[in-house]
Amino acid sequence: METQVTAQVGAKVVAPRTSVGFEYTFPAIRGVQAGREFYTSMCPMRLIPKIFIFDEDDLSAELRAQRVLNKGRLPALTKYILDNPDDYVFSALTASVDGDMSFEGHSAEGPGMRTGQLRIPMDSRFLINDGQHRRAAIEQALKENPDLGDETIAVVFFHDAGLARSQQMFADLNRHAVRPARSIGVLYDHRDEEAKTARALASLSPVFNGYVEMEKSNLSARSSKMFTLSALYYGTHALLQGLDLKPDEATKLAQSYWEAIDQSLPEWAMVRNRELPAQEMRRDYIHSHGIALHGLGRIGNSLFRESTAVTKWKKRLTPLKKVNWSRANADWEGRAIVGGRVSKSHQNVTLTVNYLRHHLGLALSPEEQRVEDAYLRGGA
C-alpha cells in the first residue's frame, strides 16, 4: 500500500498524493514570451534554500549555466536583509525547472485562464538562472532570523530546455543589465548617513549648492557643474571616516571643512561668480575632480583626529593656498594624472594625498610611505 502525504507551500495545501507523486503547488500567473509559457509566483523564503540549487562549482564554465558564486558578496547582502527586516527589497529570482509543470487556470477562458495553480513534482530540479547570490544570502539570513521564512520572494519559472537554453537565458538576462551611476545611488539612499550628509552639503553649502551633478557620476565636457554627488560623497566619507559624531555634527563639521577648503581654491569662487566657466575650470585644474576631493577628505580626517576645533585644523590648511592645482603642473604626472588623464585608482589617490601632506607638513602613514617610495623608485 502506497503512503499518502499532505504538503503545504505557503498558505496553500496540496492535495494528498502517492509517495511517487509528491509535488509543490504555487499560486501563479501564466505568461508567454517568445512563444514559450512561463509562470510568475511567490515562494516562501524558507523554501528557497531547499528547492533552488546551483551548478556545481567544480564544473568548467562551458558545462555550467551561470557564474560561480562569489562568496565575497554574501556578507553585505545578508547584512542588508538582517539590518532592514522591515524595509528590504529583493527582485525576483529566475529559475528553470527540469521536470513536468502543470498549470490549472481558475477558468477555461478570459482573465481567469491566466491565474491559477502551478504544480511541480518534488523530484524536479530547480536551477537558478538569475539570483544565485540573493538565494545564498537568504539562506544565511534565515539561519540568524528564522522568522524571515514566512516572507515571500517573487520567482519566475521557465521550462528547462537544456544546458544551451539555460546558458542563453543567463547571457540574455545579464546582457543589458546596467549598474546605476553611483551619484544617483547616493541621491536615493536614505539609510546611509553619509549619503544624507552629501545631499545636505549639495543643497545647503554655498560652496556646492547649484554646482553638483546629482544623477550622473561623470560630467560631460559642456556641463556647468563643478562636482558630481558621488565625488562629494567619497570625499566626505574619507573626511569623516572613523570619527564618532552624531549626524548633525558630522554635517556641520563637513560643511565647515569644505568651506575652509574653498577659501584656498579661488577658481571655485570664480565659477560661482561667473568669472570662469566651469568647463574651463575642470579642463585646466584638477581640484574639482573626485581624486582631489578624496585626497582633501583624507587630509581633513588626519587633522580632525588631532582636533575638531575649528581654530586648530583651519590654521593647518593655510599652506594649501600655495599648491599649484593646474594640470600643467608636472608634479601631478604619475600622481593624479596618468597619460594625460586624471586617474582615480587607489594608488593615485594615495600619491595625491602624499603630495598634499608634504605641502602641509604632515607625516605619511607607513602604507603611504611605501607607495611614495615605490613611486620615487619608478621615477628615478
Rank of each mutant, 00 (worst) to 15 (best):
Q4N: 03
V5F: 14
V5E: 14
T6R: 10
Q8A: 11
V9Y: 09
V9T: 15
K12C: 08
V13T: 04
R17C: 09
T18M: 06
Y24A: 08
P27H: 04
A34V: 10
F38H: 14
Y39I: 01
M42N: 06
M45S: 06
L47W: 01
P49H: 09
P49Y: 02
P49F: 07
S60H: 14
R64I: 05
V68L: 09
V68Q: 02
R73Q: 11
L77K: 07
L77H: 14
T78Y: 03
L82E: 13
D83E: 15
D87V: 07
V89T: 14
A92D: 12
L93M: 13
T94H: 05
S96D: 15
M101D: 13
S102G: 13
F103W: 05
A108F: 05
M113T: 11
G116Q: 09
M122F: 04
R125F: 08
F126W: 15
R134I: 10
I138R: 04
E139I: 03
Q140F: 08
A141S: 14
E151D: 15
V156I: 15
H159W: 02
D160R: 02
Q168F: 02
M169G: 00
D172L: 03
A177M: 05
V178E: 13
G185P: 06
Y188D: 03
D189M: 02
D192S: 13
E193R: 04
E194H: 08
A195P: 04
R199L: 09
L201E: 01
S203R: 13
P206H: 12
V207M: 13
G210T: 06
E213C: 03
M214A: 11
N218S: 12
S220V: 01
R222E: 14
F227C: 03
T228V: 00
T228P: 03
S230M: 06
S230Q: 09
A231P: 07
Y234E: 14
G235N: 13
A238Y: 08
L239E: 08
L239F: 15
L240P: 04
G242M: 11
L243C: 11
L243W: 11
D248N: 15
A250F: 02
K252S: 15
Q255T: 11
Y257F: 15
E259T: 14
I261Y: 03
E267P: 01
A269T: 10
M281C: 13
R283M: 09
S288E: 04
G290T: 01
A292D: 05
L296N: 02
L296R: 05
L296P: 01
G297E: 08
G297Y: 02
I299C: 05
R305Y: 12
R305Q: 14
A309V: 13
V310R: 15
P319D: 14
P319T: 12
P319A: 10
L320S: 14
V323C: 12
N329R: 12
A330M: 05
A330V: 13
E333Y: 09
I337G: 04
G339D: 10
G339E: 04
G340Q: 11
R341H: 12
K344R: 13
S345N: 11
V349I: 12
L351W: 03
V353E: 09
Y355T: 07
L356Q: 09
H358C: 01
L360G: 04
G361S: 05
L362D: 06
A363S: 15
L364V: 01
L364S: 07
S365C: 08
S365N: 11
R370E: 14
R370M: 09
E372P: 00
R377L: 11
R377D: 07
G378P: 04
A380G: 12
